[in-house]
Design a protein around this nucleic acid. Structure first.
Lengths: 225, 225
DNA sequence: GTTGTCAGCTTGTCTGAGGAGTTGATACGG
DNA sequence: CCGTATCAACTCCTCAGACAAGCTGACAAC
């Protein structure tokens, strides 16, 4: 910490340093960190800087400070920031993750879908068809995502829905890129494939729904290769 | 902010207040917050308190402060904390999510597994067999999870691996509970099912690997019903 | 042995003083 | 009229010092 190049604010650098020491095992889970004044002296920064570093890590649920007692390690590393993970990951890996989620979602949807889910399919499918011809790219993308979300929602599994929502921003960006690269994409990205998924779920055929979903999403994935 | 009951530190309360205002639409995405002194006056706290509140929200990736420019909203709400989501979710929902991830992982592993992956299967499977008879519960659980992780790792998909790791703590706790409730579980939780998954991947049969994985994980899921 | 007290630690908050970076207005030269 | 350079005002960043508030363990009194 002696020669700290000033790229990020000192407080952020101090937070990184604390995180590094936690990762290195210097302070185990539940351990108490040295006092603010001690840490400030160790890192060669002011006390308020240390306080902001601790506060940042508290926001990331790594540290917890209790007045009068001290600062304690409550997690050995920051919980993975999924937005960041998906941003950095290969798009093919992301699309394979999506395939896992949605295929299972379609399968479960075929066994649990309610009349409200079917109505949702009708609405989103007709929206999608309308957007396929004349709407701007982002409308079309949102309409497409809305149907896919309706499928996952019909699985009535909060974890799968949350997983899908986590993936949505990354998928949206990937679709935007694909449309830019390929004007014809919208036509190849067939409405019929979506109708087939909805039909299989409507017919309460889990294996068919999963297969149709897998076919469609495999096709989408292959577009980026 | 006038009558602030002192349960949490002022800085945390200030962070909550800022989060509330962002959620209420007072500051839209990308908007610039008032200066530190202004905010301090508005909330009736000192400048350093505001700074710590901002720093906490910066750690949660909601705000971003740029020296000389100001503090900006970069997300309308804190990113979903997946540990929290999984903790609160129904265990059946979690296990269905796991099923989606691992089944797809097994399928991809069957097409991409390397010799190193196969060696990993051998090690983890023999560990698991040893742990099934005499080892304490947590050893057995770790050995079981190690094999399942080896399968997902063999898919060579960073997103799936990260997803699996996110689920692990919740699954680990669920297994601990199941073992406590059912002394016989370990025997029913058959080693043969795991060997069958490994064999299918070894044989490069994606559909069989997926089916074996699905069978096994469906059985696990049904144990909690 | 149990209880009460308290000194010494910890974090929490405020204030004032500069340092450093950004931005937009303004004056200048073409 | 347009592009450029300058700069003043604004922002966040960091430090230091002071005091408040809360926790903990030692120690004395019972």
């Amino acid at each position: 910490m002696s020669v700290m190049i000033r790229r990020h604010p000192l407080a952020e650098q101090a937070a990184e340093e604390l995180l590094r020491r936690i990762g290195s095992g210097e302070w185990v889970l539940g351990a108490k960190l040295p006092g603010e004044t001690t840490l400030a002296a160790q890192l060669g920064v002011g006390r308020s800087t240390i306080r902001e570093a601790v506060r940042e890590l508290a926001g990331r649920r790594v540290l917890e400070s209790r007045q009068g007692a001290g600062v304690f390690v409550i997690a050995l590393q920051a919980a993975e920031d999924w937005d960041k993970v998906l941003r950095k990951a290969d798009i093919t890996d992301v699309l394979e993750g999506r395939l896992a989620i949605e295929t299972e979602g379609a399968r479960l949807a075929a066994t649990r879908r309610t009349p409200a889910d079917l109505k949702n399919f009708r609405y989103t499918l007709s929206d999608r068809q309308r957007a396929a011809v004349n709407a701007p790219d982002d409308w079309y993308i949102e309409a497409d995502l809305a149907f896919h979300r309706a499928v996952v929602t019909a699985a009535h599994n909060a974890v799968l829905t949350e997983l899908f929502d986590t993936f949505v921003p990354r998928i949206r960006r990937a679709m935007m890129d694909m449309l830019k690269l390929d004007e014809e994409h919208r036509h190849r990205h067939d409405q019929a494939a979506h109708e087939a998924i909805a039909d299989a779920i409507r017919a309460k055929d889990p294996e068919l729904a999963a297969a149709r979903s897998r076919e469609h999403l495999s096709a989408v994935r292959s577009l980026v290769n």
